[in-house]
Simulated assay, not measured.
Amino acid sequence: MKITDVKPADYNVFYSTYINKAPKETDLIDAFEKAESVVLQFFKSIPEHKWDYKYATGKWSIKEVFQHIIDTERIFIYRCFRIARHDKTPLAGFEQDDYILPSNAQNKSVKNLLEEYKVVRQNSIVLLKSLSDEDFKFIGISNGANLSALAAAFMILGHETHHIEVLKALYLC
């Protein structure tokens, strides 16, 4: 399935930024596999001394941004899983800022963060490979709005692209 299979009724307009940043011409599984390589290469290229950098008071460090990418993938792949299993139970939203401090990202090594990302991504890929087109098209409720399993999956890709763009613009300039 491709991003062109995602319809506006499949997600809350709030997530348009992420949907619009998702790969356009690539199959979902291929996109996840390619993005894994791109994300790992990007984060491995960051000098060790930059990982604790925050561009302003109250902003996240690079470690915390990476942890946020990982945590968000966990949450959205869980949403994808529940919806793809035709679960009609409304899924709650989450407050991203509440996750950072207890994540202990600042005390994790770069090696541990990279490993955590790889394991989460592989879990996502294995799940996505197991789903049918019908499963991807199923629409549930997440954070009070419609969400298809396919839209949830593509949001992961657009979300990490968004944050890499932010890191390049505000942290690594």
Rank of each mutant, 00 (worst) to 15 (best):
137 K>M: 08
125 I>L: 12
32 F>E: 01
49 H>N: 13
120 V>K: 05
57 T>E: 15
157 L>W: 00
41 Q>R: 07
126 V>A: 12
111 K>R: 08
135 D>P: 02
57 T>L: 05
152 A>C: 09
15 Y>K: 10
163 H>A: 08
99 Y>A: 07
141 I>A: 03
42 F>P: 01
141 I>F: 00
93 G>S: 13
160 E>K: 04
157 L>Y: 06
120 V>E: 13
131 L>C: 11
32 F>M: 03
53 Y>K: 08
122 Q>C: 00
151 A>T: 01
84 A>D: 11
55 Y>Q: 03
148 S>M: 08
41 Q>E: 14
102 P>R: 06
47 P>Y: 05
117 Y>S: 05
161 T>E: 15
22 A>D: 13
36 E>R: 12
35 A>P: 03
68 H>N: 14
163 H>F: 12
85 R>L: 12
75 I>Q: 06
27 D>E: 14
136 F>E: 02
149 A>F: 11
168 K>N: 15
36 E>M: 11
64 E>H: 08
106 Q>G: 12
7 K>G: 03
169 A>K: 15
6 V>P: 01
155 M>K: 02
101 L>H: 05
5 D>Y: 07
80 C>G: 06
78 Y>P: 02
149 A>M: 10
113 L>K: 02
151 A>M: 02
18 Y>T: 13
52 D>N: 14
134 E>G: 06
131 L>G: 04
20 N>P: 06
78 Y>D: 04
12 N>Q: 09
84 A>E: 10
59 K>P: 02
150 L>E: 08
144 G>P: 00
128 L>P: 01
122 Q>F: 04
72 T>C: 10
61 S>C: 12
159 H>F: 05
77 I>W: 08
167 L>P: 10
73 E>G: 11
135 D>W: 03
159 H>N: 11
79 R>I: 07
135 D>A: 13
28 L>Q: 02
98 D>W: 03
24 K>Y: 06
151 A>V: 00
25 E>R: 07
97 D>P: 03
58 G>W: 06
144 G>R: 01
89 T>F: 07
24 K>P: 05
13 V>E: 09
19 I>F: 01
53 Y>F: 15
109 S>C: 09
25 E>Y: 10
59 K>I: 04
166 V>K: 10
78 Y>Q: 02
45 S>G: 15
25 E>C: 06
65 V>I: 15
14 F>R: 15
58 G>S: 10
80 C>T: 13
39 V>Y: 09
27 D>Q: 13
102 P>S: 05
7 K>M: 11
103 S>Y: 03
54 K>R: 15
131 L>Q: 13
89 T>W: 10
109 S>A: 11
